[in-house]
Design a protein around this nucleic acid. Structure first.
Lengths: 230, 230
DNA sequence: TTTACGCCTATTGTAGTACAATCTTAACGT
DNA sequence: ACGTTAAGATTGTACTACAATAGGCGTAAA
């Protein structure tokens, strides 16, 4: 990883996690050079990347400003991960869950209609990896993420596929906040995933959509509980 | 507009429109400096932006490569506009229409549930502007785009709002390809928009969703015809 | 012939300086 | 109090230099 990449992540996180209030001015390029101990060249490239992600607004002769939060590109996997890492605001969480609730069932449906043999192999492989890692939560979660990503790919819709990284980031953030330690919960999760995979393999769109609706609904319910508890 | 912005658009368009085959190597930074008559500094910033948009893959010591098309960030308004400007591939068009058909009806529904008085004023203003510009197609289209954007904003879902620029780019591209010159067509369009606005104003989600389904369906139909005709 | 080694070149990453262009601010004079 | 002017601050662009390493080429050994 290059110094530029590193600083992009560091500075991006600082902004996304509220180090600087939206709308306010950031330090000048010269100050940032000192602060991060690097050349102006690197700082400018970092700024260009963060501006493309809509976190920063660079105005010539005036300075750098934090974009208003509602302009941030939440569909960018980096931005989403940075924001979610440090407990995001409830509005964003609700918006994300709402959108996910809209598109995931349709993704499952499309996957059931279009999955090729190759797609099915990928989905099944990740299901099996989940199954055999019930006692290793980190591995289990990563397999779960790959399972859903494999389904996404099976839609063969390039626009939907763009969302893959963002959805993965969302899943990771949810995993970090919800504990599926208890046995009954794990069994239920595996059963749901089994049902979904089965529906896709049998090329049954209705069953796939229904299976997904249950999962999404329960995830949303968990998120609501977490929010209420905190 | 700065030189960097200008070259980002120029080079980005070249790549997005197939000047260089996906997967192949691009000219080196030094060559690009000569080709675009600029400093390496500017070229590197251009590259950073296009890499963030997933059009370019910069590999240290190896060179610059065009990303595979299915990695391009089609949810970025620039990328989408560049790609669509020069007749995109049918797969992409189909994917876009499919996704739009999924989310637009729900957007209409949410807008009907949540639109504030301010939102309604914005929507109505743009409807009226469409109405009074039936004979000025460019103005009519821009008003149409703002009409749909106002509805998007009325969902009060920040994730959905991120899609606004991309959807506007998509609409512009569709307008450029479809001719609504004939009178009957225009009347139908206005009627559909009136129905949608009316449903949102009356806070009737079902009616809003239904009105939108008709519009989306007809747009998809038009796109299919255009594709068949070419 | 094949393989291993080392040298050379090409290429991106980082640092630093210099100047241009213009917006902001403060000082100044009336 | 107000308009003018000048200085300073800040981003945009250009150029040079060096670092670090992947890849290609040639050479020599097995």
């Amino acid at each position: 990883m290059t110094k530029t990449d590193w600083l992009t992540e560091l500075f991006g996180k600082q902004i996304a996690q509220g180090h600087y209030a939206p709308g306010t001015a950031l330090p000048s390029e010269a100050d940032l050079c000192v602060q991060f101990d690097t050349s102006r060249n690197v700082i400018r490239e970092v700024i260009k990347v963060l501006a493309t992600k809509k976190l920063i607004d660079a105005q010539r002769h005036r300075g750098l400003f934090v974009m208003p939060q509602d302009q941030w590109n939440y569909l960018d996997a980096d931005v989403l991960a940075w924001v979610l890492e440090k407990g995001a605001n409830p509005d964003l969480i609700y918006s994300l869950i709402e959108v996910r609730g809209l598109i995931e069932p349709m993704i499952s449906r499309w996957a059931a209609e279009r999955a090729t043999a190759i797609d099915l192999v990928a989905i099944e492989a990740n299901y099996n990896e989940m199954d055999s890692n019930r006692n290793d939560l980190p591995k289990f979660n990563e397999a779960d993420i790959r399972f859903h990503k494999a389904i996404l790919m099976a839609t063969h819709n390039v626009v939907i596929q763009q969302l893959a990284d963002a959805i993965s980031a969302l899943q990771r953030a949810i995993f970090d906040r919800t504990i599926l330690a208890d046995h009954a919960h794990m069994e239920l999760t595996m059963q749901e995933h089994a049902d979904l995979f089965d529906a896709i393999r049998r090329k049954n769109p209705e069953a796939a959509e229904k299976a997904c609706l249950g999962m999404v609904g329960r995830t949303a319910e968990r998120a609501r509980k977490q929010k209420a508890a905190q």
